[in-house]
Design a protein around this nucleic acid. Sequence first.
DNA 1: TTTCAACCTGGAGTGCGCTCCAGGTCAAGC
DNA 2: GCTTGACCTGGAGCGCACTCCAGGTTGAAA
Lengths: 119, 119
Amino acid sequence: MSGYSPSEAATRSGFSLDTLRYYEKIGLLSDIGRTSGGRRVFTDDDLGWLVLFRCLRDTGMPIAEMCRYAELAREGEHTTGERHALLRRHAERVEEQVRLLQRQYDHLREKIRYYEQLG
Amino acid sequence: MSGYSPSEAATRSGFSLDTLRYYEKIGLLSDIGRTSGGRRVFTDDDLGWLVLFRCLRDTGMPIAEMCRYAELAREGEHTTGERHALLRRHAERVEEQVRLLQRQYDHLREKIRYYEQLG
DNA sequence: TTTCAACCTGGAGTGCGCTCCAGGTCAAGC
DNA sequence: GCTTGACCTGGAGCGCACTCCAGGTTGAAA
């Protein structure tokens, strides 16, 4: 339940400690809790954001765009339309990316078959 | 037929002129022909290499590894085994990459569906 | 013959996304 | 109380893959 150390958050999200600090520094993460001694405490909610960021990064969204999304979310409910549109645009790019990757993968397999048929 | 200007090679390969020059500078491309005046002339064979590089880059192979492959090819027939292995290893990485991308794409679609169901 | 877009070179600069470092603080276990 | 490992900050540095620039040359078309 709520309350993860930095290294726990790193492990669960797949981001490094430095990356988590970096994300907070540039404002992608905000309002991360602290102990009295100044150490970060990540909540389940923070972890949820990290999972989303993981998804967006893995699908090639630039950090600037994730910042935009996070900013919209912070602005409140009235930005859901824009957030939705942002994700839909991104999904389209990902579809294109998958198609290209698949196509080039097929080329690669063909090349490999050439070597196989070579003996 | 054999004999493409730099800009033609760029158009056909999808690399920029600067990138073609860069690839020659680092030794990825080698023995690119020249006119008496010093301009590059790309052959069909060169174009074939560029198509392969396009495939490898699009599937995320680092340039250093493409250099390695090109170097092996230059060494002659006795390196086909190593070249084959290199491409097979790469293909495996691409398969993993496709799986990850697909998985994260599914997450993304789920998130989008959340916004859709929201009204 | 003149023009001018395409080309040449070497080298510096850019953008992205981290990653590392020094020098210090905190807190759990012995 | 002491040790030790996890954590803190600000800021510098890095790796990759280009991309841009200045200053000069070339060659096809008008």
